[in-house]
Design a protein around this nucleic acid. Sequence first.
DNA 1: AAGATTACCTGAAGGC
DNA 2: TGCCTTCAGGTAATCT
Length: 275
Amino acid sequence: MPELPEVESVGRALAADLTGRRLTGLRVRWGGVFEPSPGAVRAALLGRTLTGLHRHGKYLILRFEGEGNGDAAFLMVHLRMTGQFLAQEDYRPDSHVHVTFDFDGRAVHYRDVRKFGRLSLVEHGTHPQALAHVGPDMLTVRTADWLGRVRRRGAPFKSVLLDQGVAAGLGNIYADESLFLARVHPLARPRDLDETELREVLRRAKQVLRLAINHGGTTFLDFRNFHGQPGNFRRKLRVYGRGGEPCRDCGAAIERMVIGGRSSCWCPRCQPAPR
DNA sequence: AAGATTACCTGAAGGC
DNA sequence: TGCCTTCAGGTAATCT
């Protein structure tokens, strides 16, 4: 599932391959991925050049310029659960490929088995509001800003980390990993922790995100990897998906429970239960 | 009004 | 050519 590190990796690959190229074709098999509509996206972007790509949390924002009315237009991408961009030369689209972009003859396929992902047109004027509901990026948020956002929260820390309005980018995997590294129980409430503990959670979150980026992410299919193999961070995971298995640090059995509707794993010895 | 629950989707896995 | 249920998780909408 793409979280911040996987989205970062996809974005880097897209930027490296497509920046400066012109969108010459748009083949749509299932128009439901586009907001507000395939026609609007086609009218706004076809014939224009991809001039920049930016990531914020789990969003990718593609900037298109040239021709048109002179103003830049943006395509805001969220891969949700199973969205992928694939560009292997010999790739044969299957029934889950909903859109194929042609960039000067180079085909880039958008594939999404569960159809949760969205490719949203953002017109020039509405650009500032497009991400208004999303908090600062988890990788670059300033400590004082983040502390102010979490300090009074009474929900389980696990849920606060997943709240993209607080800070954007952590998903279920890296939220569990961050709490393990910080030695904080997922049910601990931010308002009950002291500032040192809160700072440690943020420090560890940034650390694990950077580490995962350097390993190519955990589960996404990198479109530059013609084998379609996943990133290799999976083997580094300390608690996520390891319920019942021994903690790599202390050997205790990793526990699992549902918190805020999300499967959550932690080590009962390394992350003692809150009082 | 923050916190909890459900809807959106499909495929894998497991029980029987 | 087995059928059915459960699970997986990001976010928006809908609840309490």
